[in-house]
Design a protein around this nucleic acid. Structure first.
Lengths: 193, 193
DNA sequence: CAAGATTAGTCAACATGGCTGACGTATTGC
DNA sequence: GCAATACGTCAGCCATGTTGACTAATCTTG
């Protein structure tokens, strides 16, 4: 094995560098979901439940549409996990005050506990990696991820930062789901098979 | 929305920082798989096919066991995609020379074309992100990912680098699949639902 | 105020890609 | 010669994505 059609020309090195990043992304993502997956499996949930719980905890009173916009899945897919979360008392919903059609989602105490349990494992992993790599590396890490992400997602992440993130953008206060990319309801992802 | 139980205490900031990294990881991963997924869908393949093609291209003459060790899935799961790739002429296998039980996998011309088509989209995305973020950021990006990954995966990635990666480790030349973590055949992942 | 748009939910059916368990067949190595 | 290994296969389950069709409540607007 280890057959590099080598020759130390710069083009090869560049390609190799890119491949390395891509592979590391694959490996790191797998690892970073592994612990939550194990916990979820114990209680009969899956990764999709984690995502819903996570973002409901992140944005209390989020509406179903907003959540769909973040997750980019169809409402039928979300419905499956959401109704389980409701049934089993991890999430509650209340009618919107301004708009009564909306269902504002929130974690219950139980939901918050599970969210914490799941996220703590990921935070611990990140905390260790951040610490080992150093503050400057963390800034670089985020800068590269920012370049990979969909800009709509990026601005959502940044809008929650107390200070607006490194490229400070004092624009819209926070709309969670940009009307621009993807609109509502119907998702286009095809992802996460 | 945007309800941060704020107060600018350092603990809150730290947690916020970690959450931000986690979310960015989620968003970036989704984005970085989106283009290959679209291409794959056109020809009736899925993400699993991409992964197999990618690593077969990466490690020509890789054995089935080694591939299983990298992907960490069961042979039954791999078999599904691998036999399609064989049937449709993207991959060929040859008996091992030393060990005739092994099937050494390789991409055909056709497989190489598809691999390139898929990976080019990801490389372009990374190249743009790297360029925008700068060389130092790239080093930080990799340092953090290295801290998140399973060390066994990390050493595999590094063993392919012409110079061995930044933390230069002149150990084993390249075993692809460390006998340590996970052994062979049976996978334990539960991941990627 | 009536019509149309939006928000949420539901039923049904399908695909992908994980998984377990149980076997079969070469081939290797002790 | 026999056990272990490498590979493959059949069968069935589960989670989570998808489409498409349709209902009900509520808002918005002409």
């Amino acid at each position: 094995m280890v057959d590099l059609k080598s020759g130390a020309n710069p083009l090869f090195l560049r390609e190799e560098e890119l491949r390395r990043g891509i592979e590391m992304m694959f490996y790191a993502y797998r690892e970073f979901t592994s612990e939550p997956d194990r916990i979820l499996a114990e209680i009969g949930f899956g990764r999709a439940h984690h995502r819903a719980i996570y973002f409901i905890g992140r944005y209390p009173e989020i509406t179903v549409s907003e959540l769909l916009g973040i997750l980019r899945i169809t409402k039928q897919s979300l419905s499956r996990v959401l109704s389980q979360l409701l049934d089993e008392g991890y999430v509650v919903q209340a009618r919107g005050r301004r708009d009564q059609r909306q269902r504002l989602l929130q974690l219950t105490e139980r939901g918050r506990d599970l969210e914490k349990r799941l996220s703590d494992t990921q935070r611990a992993r990140f905390a260790a990696a951040y610490k080992a790599a150093g503050a400057e590396a963390v800034a670089g890490f985020r800068a590269v991820l920012a370049g990979i992400m969909d800009p709509a997602d990026l601005s959502r992440v940044e809008s929650l930062m107390p200070n607006g993130g490194e490229e400070a953008r004092p624009e819209e206060p926070a709309s969670l789901v940009k009307a621009g990319s993807g609109s509502l309801g119907r998702a286009q992802s095809k992802a996460e098979r």
